[in-house]
């Protein structure tokens, strides 16, 4: 069951056209084409090394693509016609609109939970301190950690840290959220809390790109699943289809392995 069905006539949030990325000789993305609608939850699966992280990291330009285009609501992200300076500030604006959550949380260890969340809104968006604080508290409430706001990250469990990381990204009021295997570093019993937060986000209409090995989550929350291999989108289908009747042999093989 999908938790919500995006209106397919809605305008496109993300449009990726013939995206290529190489690290020197190593070609990691070999022409990815992808369209993500507003409020859509796209789940990305595929074997390790297939380029899933690189795809996400190209979207917020942590990795500069070597070819192709990425548009966020029609705005070209990797706009190489801009001067270096203009491109830098363009990128920073784009990154305010694209939230990212990492496998390793990457919370700022020298700041409390609350400061972690308030930092970018204050420093980047120029939000007033008190306002940022209120917003941070309500975000912590949303991820179920309001009682931890004065703790330092090292005092939290992995699952709690990851939920703070989600709150930190949400504090920028992004249009899209990127999740890169955000539960892979967690003890199994902590995975559920994080997935529930993500499910809630999806229900509230956030556009999400989710790289995960949690097939249960993909089936329940995903609107669409893409299977990647060797830097290409091999299969692109609704979760019910891809899990019950995968068309491609490679998808079948991969699913047989992970679901076994």
């Amino acid at each position: 069951m999908t938790s919500h069905s995006p209106d397919r006539t809605q305008s496109t949030m993300l449009h990726i056209n013939n995206l290529q990325k190489s690290f020197g000789e190593l070609a990691v993305l070999n022409g990815v084409n992808l369209e993500v609608a507003q409020q859509e939850v796209l789940v990305i699966i595929g074997p390790s090394g297939s380029g899933k992280s690189t795809l996400l990291r190209c979207v917020n330009h942590l990795e500069p693509p070597t070819g192709g285009e990425i548009y966020l609501e029609g705005v070209l992200i990797n706009d190489t016609t801009k001067s270096r300076r203009a491109f830098e500030s363009h990128l920073n604006r784009i990154r305010c609109e694209v939230g990212m959550v990492f496998q390793q949380f990457n919370l700022f260890p020298h700041m409390t939970v609350l400061e972690n969340i308030m930092e970018a809104p204050i420093q980047v968006l120029g939000v007033r301190r008190e306002e940022a604080r209120q917003a941070a508290i309500s975000l912590l409430d949303r991820v179920g950690l309001a009682d931890k706001m004065d703790n330092y990250p090292c005092m939290l469990s992995g699952g709690q840290q990851q939920r703070v990381a989600i709150a930190r990204a949400l504090a920028m009021k992004p249009k899209v959220m990127l999740f890169d295997e955000v539960t892979s570093a967690l003890d199994p019993e902590l995975v559920g809390d994080v997935l529930r937060v993500m499910e809630g986000l999806a229900r509230d209409g956030m556009t999400m790109l989710v790289v995960t090995h949690e097939m249960g989550f993909a089936e329940k929350v995903g609107d669409r699943v893409i299977f990647m291999a060797d830097g290409l989108v091999v299969e692109d289908a609704p979760p019910q289809e891809i899990f019950s009747a995968p068309k491609e042999a490679r998808t079948r093989q991969f699913l047989a392995e992970v679901l076994k």
């Binding site: 500030s89 920073n92 604006r93 990154r95 939230g99 990492f102 990457n106 968006l125 920028m172």
Partner: peptide, 16 residues
């Protein structure tokens, strides 16, 4: 390096 990436992904420029 994850610290830099987290900061940059939140829209911070390099100096910030």
């Amino acid at each position: 390096y994850g610290q830099t990436e987290a900061a940059r992904s939140l829209g911070m420029n390099g100096a910030l």
